[in-house]
Computed example of a mutant assay.
Amino acid sequence: MKVLVTGGAGFIGSAVCRYLVGELGHTAINVDKLTYAGNLSTLKEIEDSPNYHFEKVDICDRAALDDVFKRHKPDAVMHLAAESHVDRSITGAADFIQTNIVGTFQMLEAARDHYGSLDDAGKKAFRFLHVSTDEVYGSLGADGLFEETTPYDPSSPYSASKASADHLANAWFETYGLPVVISNCSNNYGPYHLPEKLIPLMILNALDGKPLPVYGDGSNVRDWLYVDDHAKALFTIMTTGRLGEKYNVGGRNERTNLEVVERICDILEELRPKNTPYSEQITFVTDRPGHDARYAIDATKLEDELGWKAEENFESGIKKTIQWYLDNEWWWAPLREHAGERKGVLAAKKD
């Protein structure tokens, strides 16, 4: 297969490209604008492969997209390009509206034109996988799981922009017959994750002897999914998912944020012991606005219909992740200059 992957220099997109090219032997056309979140060093393993191609393109640039489709003639699209940091969306929503909504519209239109140019066999095989997030569903209480039928209830500019993009993708299936499939995933973690994100930030701050800032009281719950498991799920959904359907991807690994940070500290005690406990670096900071209490994905549809199963549980995945950061300073050290603080931390109110 020849797959056009938008956002292929990002965290999840690069895992998808490495899986497509390195493990499956397919061709990946990486379309990425290379914003702060895009880093070609994440693709070092496959950069010299004849099956890997990079196109520096903004997904909001329709003419450039049309050119990529005409030159590469992909068999499928995996649309991952997005502004994806909740904290950044709170202080700079405009980029999220532009990339996540307008960019998705341009991608759908470019793909629709390409789809129209295909012969019958090409049309039958073509798929447009739109990759989204569980945050479009809003927040859960203490019980229950997000299902594919859960009503949308986004609460941040990021999740609202992704919900909008999901609706666009579904509309292009219903209105124009574009063969769309949608996925919604839980929180990802693993190698090559930007140092500003929770898990790598805690690992690297701990190693540097810096505070480990936890929002509120740390009771917010997330379902964690190892990024390589997600990449495999996305390929499964793209190739075997039913058109017009949505599939939730989750790791069945619920943890409070505080539990995640404490486990990172425990593992570092084993792998890189020091004189004082890492847990002494944990600090509690002002909660961010609209911080959803709990996310948890029900992946039963994906597991039962398409046969996907997560290979890593949180315990095995977090150990692999921490060891990767210990072994790969070459990758993360250049990115650490502006990544030592939580992006959404608010100044405490004065009396």
Rank of each mutant, 00 (worst) to 15 (best):
K309D: 03
E305T: 03
V181I: 12
H167L: 15
I322H: 03
T300A: 12
K44D: 11
E83Q: 14
M238L: 14
L326G: 11
L194H: 15
V57K: 00
Y278V: 01
F96H: 11
L335I: 04
S14M: 05
L4W: 00
G103Q: 06
F314C: 07
D217N: 15
K309G: 02
V221Y: 05
G13C: 04
H130A: 06
A299W: 07
E47I: 14
L40M: 13
Y176M: 08
D228H: 09
V214I: 14
G251V: 03
G218K: 11
I264L: 12
A160V: 11
W332L: 08
Y137E: 05
L302C: 04
K2T: 13
L225D: 02
G241A: 02
A110F: 00
T276H: 13
R288W: 12
K44H: 13
F96T: 02
N30K: 00
E270W: 03
F105T: 13
L168E: 07
K162R: 10
G340C: 11
E269M: 13
Y189K: 07
K274R: 15
P211T: 10
L40V: 14
Y325L: 06
F128A: 00
G116L: 03
E109A: 14
H85W: 05
S161H: 10
G190T: 15
H85K: 06
G22N: 14
E45L: 11
H26L: 08
R88E: 13
F235E: 04
E196N: 07
Y215C: 07
E196K: 05
Q281W: 10
R112H: 11
D75A: 08
C17T: 12
M78E: 10
M78W: 02
A333H: 11
W332G: 00
E329F: 10
H167I: 06
E262F: 12
G307N: 09
D266M: 06
N328D: 12
A206R: 07
V131R: 01
K33P: 00
N184A: 08
H291K: 09
P50T: 05
I182A: 01
I46T: 11
W332E: 06
G116Q: 06
N253G: 05
R62P: 00
T27H: 08
N184T: 14
H230M: 15
Y152T: 09
P213Y: 08
G244Y: 07
D229Q: 01
A76N: 06
E262R: 15
R263M: 11
H85N: 14
D32I: 10
V21E: 05
E311M: 13
L243S: 09
D327N: 14
V57T: 04
I29N: 01
E196M: 07
K44V: 05
M1L: 12
L40F: 01
I182F: 00
Y295S: 10
I318T: 10
A339F: 03
D166N: 12
F173T: 04
F284P: 07
